[in-house]
Amino acid sequence: MVTISRTELDKIREISNIGLGQAATSLSQLLDMPCKMTVPAVTVTGFDDIIALAGGAENEVAAISLKMEGAFRATMLFIFPAAHVSSIVKQLTGEQSGILEGIGHSALREFGNIITGAYVATFADLTKLNVRSSIPDVVIDMAGAAITPSLLPLSLYGDDVILIQTNFNDWFEKSPERFQAQFYLLPEPGSMNVLRTALEGMPS
């Protein structure tokens, strides 16, 4: 069982709020449309609950996965419905086809870099930890299959994880469907002591 104090949760929430706020600004510039985000929710949760948040194990999603590496290790996941992939690729590349192969996948990886880049920079700045992000990878498949690989390093420690979750809404205001994208940060339990010490140095 993962343990984390209320004060620590609040500090992580604050870091995430600032970092993802910047990510949201970059995104609205990139996509040329308003991008709103929810205040990050920080919880300790089970594997199946995480899959349920992404719409259930069989829900078709696009998942962009990156590692936060260095002094502190975590997995960052950006998830959105697979149905929105082609419109995002069109918007990013200006291509009409919204194809998934080649340029489409590169565009989505770049999309992941922008979202997580702003977050990682803020995280490093506020915690004074030397962290960087890995290369991004993209998979479009069932949520269970797309998310589980990111849970593996955490599964060595137990059956629950610390989840920092933020929803991004209203990217496509004209779209009848309400677009919901989610950002997850999943710290590796072995890194939690490093983070605790860094958080103590931060003003509450």
Binding site: G56, M142, A143, A145, A146, P149
Partner: peptide
């Protein structure tokens, strides 16, 4: 059956698991 879990069933029922990736 959920992730990292097990279950059983008796005839004539079925048993399944969804969204297996590396699992």
């Amino acid at each position: 059956v959920g992730m990292a879990d097990m279950g059983y069933c008796l005839a004539p029922n079925s048993i399944g698991s969804s969204g297996l990736g590396s699992c």
